[in-house]
Amino acid sequence: MNGMPAKIHTGVPGLDKMLHGGLVPARPYILSGPPGAGKTIMSVQFLREGLEGGERCLYVALEEPPNELKLNMRPFRWNLDDMEVLDANSDVRRFEPTPILEISTEEEPARMRDLDDRIRKTPDFESREVTVHSLQQLLKNLFVKRQYQRVVIDSVTALKYFCMREFEESLTTQSFMRFLTEAKVTSLLTVELPEEGEAPPEAFLARGEIRLHKFRDDTGIRRFISVEKYKGSSHDDVVYPFDITATGAVVQSGPSKGVAASL
C-alpha cells in the first residue's frame, strides 16, 4: 500500500470499517440499491462528512428538485448550509417548436441555505434540457473554478434515462466516469437497481461499488449493505444490516452481526 493516499471517511457509521478505513480519494464509486433503500440519504451523509472537515462539496440533483431535497434532509438536523447543489433536472418538454436551451455552461450551483422553498417553474417560452454533454461541460468549468473534494451524482440512472440517447448509453456512461476520474474528485454515483433480477451494467464501471439491499419480512423492511468491489483496497465481504435512524444511516458491522443478524 505504499504511495497510496490516506483514505477518507464516508460519514456513515460502520461503513468505513467495512471498507477497511474508508475510500481511496480522487476516484469514482458507485452506491447502488433498489428504490427506497436509502441511497440519497447515504450520499448526503458522505457530503456532510466532507463539510465537517471544511471540504468543498457538490451535489448534482438529477431526479429530485433541490427544494424537495432540502425539505427531505431537514429531519436529520445536519448542517448542510454550505453544501452546493446543482439543479440538473430537465424542464417540462415543449411539444410546440420553441427554443430548447441546453443547460447553460455558466450555470452556478446554489448553496443549500440559499435554495428556494418552491420548485423552479419551466419558463413559458423556452425549455431547459440537460444532456450528458452539457452537464459534463458545465462540471468541467466548475471544477476548474473551484476545487471540489467530494461530488455526488444522484443518480446515474436518471442521467442514463433522461440525458442521453439509448444507443449510446454504456459508452457515454463510461466516458462520464472517466471524466470524473480525471477531475480527481472523490465522487459517489447512485444507481437504481430493480427490485428483482440482475444489476444494470453501469454498476460494473466504477472502482468500487457499495450495494444496498432491501427485503421484507414479518418485522417490516430490512436493509443490508455489502461492498461488492473495491479496487486497490481490501474490504469486508460480509453482508451487514443497516438502519436509517433519526441521525442518518448506521451500519451494524460489529463482529458477530453478519449472518446471525440476517434472519
Partner: peptide, 16 residues
C-alpha cells in the same frame, strides 16, 4: 417513453 414520462412527472411536480 422515458423522456416523455420524465417530462410529464416534472409537469405534475410544477403544478404543486
Amino acid at each position: 417513453s422515458r423522456i416523455l414520462i420524465q417530462s410529464f412527472m416534472r409537469f405534475l411536480s410544477e403544478l404543486e
